[in-house]
C-alpha cells in the first residue's frame, strides 16, 4: 500500500502540470446530498468531502470550478478543468472520449413516481407515462433503451433538480435517477407529499456503468493514478467510511 502511494507521489512529482492546483469540475446546479452550494456560496455534500479527502491524502491542492453539466466533458477535453468528480458513471461510451479513475461509489438506479401512477419499475409499469431524466446521463441512455417503446415520452432536463421540480408540478409521471439522489428528494416536504419510490430498475452494467469515478483527460495518467491512490488511501484509513456515516445509513461503495 505505502509503496503504491509513494509510486503515485513520484509520478505526480514528475508531471509539472500538477504543480498547480487540480481544477475539479462540478456542475453548479444542486445535486444533494452529493454536491450543492449553500447560501454562503460554499460547496457542501458527500462528494465534496470525499474529493477533499482524496486530494488531502495525496498532499495535492485543488480548486472547484463550476461548469454546466451539459458542457462538462468538453470543458475537460479543452482543458478548462482537469477532472470531473461529479457523480459521473464510468461507461464505455464515455471511455471513448475520456479516462476514468477507479469507482468511488456505486448505487442502484431507481424510479420515483407520482403516488399511485406507476406500478412497477419496468417497461410495462411505465407504459403510457412521461418519464423525466437528466440529460447526458446513464439514466437517459437506459430510459431510451428500455422505456422508449412503451412510455409516452422521455423528457430530458439540464439538471435532476428540474426534473424533480416537474415531477412535483405533475408535468411528468416519473423520474429515473440514482437512488441516493432520489432518496434525498423523497425526504423533502414536496417530495414526500407527491411521490413514492417505485423500485430499482433491472441492472444493465453496459449502460448504467460500473460505478462513479473521476473523469480525466485521456493520457493524463499522473492525475488518474494520484486519484486512484487517494481513493485507496481513504478507503484504507477509514476516512471514507467516516464521511459516509455522516450522510448515509449504510455504505454506498457498492462491492
Amino acid at each position: 500500500m505505502k509503496t503504491l502511494i509513494l509510486a503515485a507521489a513520484l509520478t505526480l512529482g514528475a508531471g509539472a502540470a500538477l504543480a498547480e492546483p487540480v481544477k475539479v469540475g462540478m456542475a453548479p446546479e444542486p445535486y444533494p446530498p452529493f454536491a450543492s452550494m449553500d447560501a454562503s456560496g460554499k460547496w457542501v455534500g458527500w462528494e465534496i468531502e470525499i474529493v477533499d479527502a482524496i486530494f488531502k491524502s495525496q498532499g495535492m491542492e485543488y480548486t472547484i470550478v463550476p461548469v454546466a453539466w451539459d458542457g462538462i466533458i468538453p470543458a475537460l477535453t479543452s482543458g478548462q478543468i482537469d477532472t470531473i468528480m461529479n457523480s459521473m458513471s464510468i461507461t464505455d461510451e464515455r471511455l471513448r472520449t475520456i479516462d476514468f479513475s477507479d469507482k468511488y461509489y456505486n448505487t442502484p438506479t431507481v424510479i420515483v413516481a407520482a403516488k399511485g401512477a406507476v406500478a412497477s419499475p419496468d417497461a410495462e409499469g411505465l407504459a403510457g407515462k412521461i418519464i423525466g431524466v437528466q440529460v447526458s446521463t446513464v439514466h437517459q441512455n437506459y430510459a431510451e433503451k428500455y422505456f422508449a417503446g412503451s412510455a409516452a415520452e422521455i423528457k430530458t432536463y439540464q439538471t435532476q433538480d428540474e426534473a424533480n421540480q416537474d415531477l412535483v408540478a405533475g408535468r411528468i409521471d416519473a423520474v429515473q435517477a440514482d437512488s441516493i439522489a432520489l432518496d434525498a428528494f423523497l425526504a423533502t416536504e414536496a417530495g414526500a407529499a407527491c411521490c413514492e419510490l417505485v423500485g430499482a430498475v433491472k441492472d444493465d452494467p453496459e449502460i448504467l456503468g460500473r460505478g462513479v469515478g473521476a473523469g480525466v483527460r485521456k493520457g493524463d495518467d499522473a492525475l488518474r493514478e494520484a486519484i486512484n491512490a487517494g481513493i485507496k488511501a481513504i478507503r484504507a484509513d477509514g476516512t471514507y467510511d467516516a464521511i459516509t456515516a455522516k450522510y448515509f445509513a449504510s455504505s454506498i461503495y457498492g462491492d
Binding site: 453548479p28 446546479e29 444542486p30 447560501a39 461548469v67 451539459d70 458542457g71 433538480d161 421540480q165
Partner: peptide, 17 residues
C-alpha cells in the same frame, strides 16, 4: 447556460435549493 455564476444562475441555484 455555460455554468458561469452570474445573477441568473445564482438565482436558479437559490430557487432550486
Amino acid at each position: 447556460v455555460v455554468g458561469f455564476s452570474e445573477l441568473t444562475l445564482e438565482t436558479r441555484q437559490a430557487a432550486g435549493t
